[in-house]
Amino acid sequence: MGNALTTICATSDIHSPQYLELFKKALANSTCKPDLFILAGDIVEHNNIAEYRRVLELINSVHPGIPVAAVFGNEEYVGSEKEYVVRYPNVIFLHDNYRVIDTLTGRIVAVGSRGALDKPTQWQAKNMPGLIKYFRDLPDKISSLISQAASTNLPIILVTHYGVTYRNLTGENPAIHPYLASRRMENVIVNHRNVLKAVIHGHAHNGLVESIDIDSVKVYNVALPARGRIIKVEV
């Protein structure tokens, strides 16, 4: 059991109801048999909290009883996190913290966050004045969380919504790379390469690169509009 691979099925950016039919087809065509399902943010459009249920019902119809872990995206609005947690108690929501998760093949640790950006959007900068400092401080916080999680001696994955490097953003306009990812998060991965088993993120809808290696750590962009399918991650 201790040496068993844990199979994770991962996706993000369903923006339900916008890409719900694509998600339904992706689930139907997927060969991924998960021990854990991960939703890497922007599961609904414009904070439509009720739509989250439709996504979860689809997952449960194909993979009944499989644990689901999730981070929030920019479309799950800041300040609404508690409402998602209350409405969907069966989801393991990760919000700048880590959780030990019991999967079908054993226990792993998921560190999760919306993530950071090198630049907030103009709307974010105007309406969320504390966000610039939050983005600046977050990589250090995530690094600390990974260090704490390492004390469990369990496999660790990092899940964010925003990207963690520019190196897998081919297909996106370079002018918007700072609004898609944080380059400082790449340093977090490098510094914890000995304990991180995988990194999963979304947000880059046009990213042509499914996965890259950062110092032997596999980093996946699982955004549904980019991939068109469910991504299989084994740790």
Rank of each mutant, 00 (worst) to 15 (best):
Y77H: 15
V209F: 01
V109H: 05
K218D: 10
P120W: 12
S211G: 07
T31C: 09
D140M: 07
I212W: 09
E234Y: 04
I66P: 01
S113E: 04
K133M: 11
S16F: 03
G106E: 09
T170V: 13
H177M: 07
I92G: 00
K197S: 13
N60F: 03
L145Y: 04
I230Q: 03
L36P: 05
N168C: 12
S61T: 09
N97F: 08
D96L: 06
T31G: 13
L131P: 02
N168E: 09
Y52D: 00
P89V: 04
V233S: 08
V217H: 03
L224S: 09
R184P: 00
I59K: 01
A10Q: 07
E186W: 02
V219C: 10
V222W: 07
V86D: 15
G2V: 12
A149D: 12
E75I: 00
E45P: 00
Y84H: 05
D42Q: 00
H63Q: 10
F135M: 11
K82D: 15
A198I: 07
T170A: 15
A50H: 06
V91A: 03
N47P: 02
I38A: 08
Q122V: 08
I231P: 00
T121W: 08
I49F: 01
V233A: 09
E51N: 12
V209Y: 01
R183F: 02
M185D: 05
A150S: 15
A204T: 06
Y98M: 10
N90D: 15
H161Q: 05
K82C: 07
Y220K: 13
N153L: 05
G79P: 11
S216L: 14
D35F: 11
A50M: 06
I230A: 02
I189R: 00
P174M: 13
D96G: 04
Q122F: 09
R136H: 14
H46K: 08
P89N: 08
D35E: 14
T103M: 13
R136K: 14
K141G: 03
G207E: 06
N194R: 10
G171A: 11
V111M: 04
P139C: 10
N47H: 04
E75K: 11
E186N: 02
S61Y: 00
L5S: 15
H205Y: 11
P120C: 14
N90V: 05
L36D: 07
V71N: 06
R114S: 11
V233P: 02
S30M: 06
G73H: 04
P174N: 14
A149F: 07
D13A: 05
I43G: 02
G41E: 02
V235K: 02
V190K: 13
F72Q: 03
A198C: 04
V164T: 13
S182N: 06
Y52R: 02
A4P: 01
I66H: 04
P155E: 06
L22V: 08
N206Y: 04
L131N: 08
I231F: 03
E81T: 06
L169D: 09
C32W: 10
E75M: 11
I156C: 03
S61H: 07
G65Y: 09
S211C: 12
G106W: 12
V91E: 03
K82I: 11
R87A: 14
G202K: 05
Y52E: 02
I142F: 01
A181P: 03
S182M: 07
H15R: 08
M185K: 01
T152R: 12
S16T: 13
V188C: 01
M1C: 14
D140N: 12
P89F: 06
D215R: 14
